[in-house]
C-alpha cells in the first residue's frame, strides 16, 4: 500500500519510493539520508498539521507537514 508520510501512523514503517518535489527539496532530503529505497519509520506528528518526525537509518528528522506530504512511502507487508 502506498501512502504519503503524513498518512502514516506513528510507529508505522515503510520504504521511501518517491519524493514528489523540486530538485532543491530532493537535494536537501537526500543529503540527510532520505532517498528512494530507504526504510523509514514515523515516530510522531504534531497536531494541527505540525511537523512529522521520522527515523531514517539511525537519524531522526523533523519534516514540515507540506514536505512530508511529498514523500511517498510503500508500507511494509509484514507489518500489516
Amino acid at each position: 500500500m502506498v501512502k504519503t508520510l503524513t498518512e502514516l501512523k506513528p510507529e508505522e514503517s515503510g520504504t521511501v519510493i518517491e519524493i514528489r518535489g523540486g530538485q532543491g527539496l530532493v537535494n536537501r532530503l537526500n543529503a540527510m539520508g532520505v532517498i528512494p529505497g530507504k526504510k523509514i519509520t514515523k515516530v510522531s506528528s504534531m497536531f494541527m498539521r505540525g511537523p512529522v518526525t521520522v527515523q531514517v537509518n539511525r537519524t531522526m528528522l523533523a519534516v514540515g507537514f507540506g514536505m512530508a506530504r511529498k514523500i511517498i512511502v510503500e508500507i511494509d507487508r509484514e507489518a500489516q
Partner: peptide
C-alpha cells in the same frame, strides 16, 4: 513561512 527540515540529534 517556509517549512521545517532539521535533524534531531540523540
Amino acid at each position: 513561512s517556509p517549512e521545517l527540515l532539521i535533524e534531531i540529534p540523540p
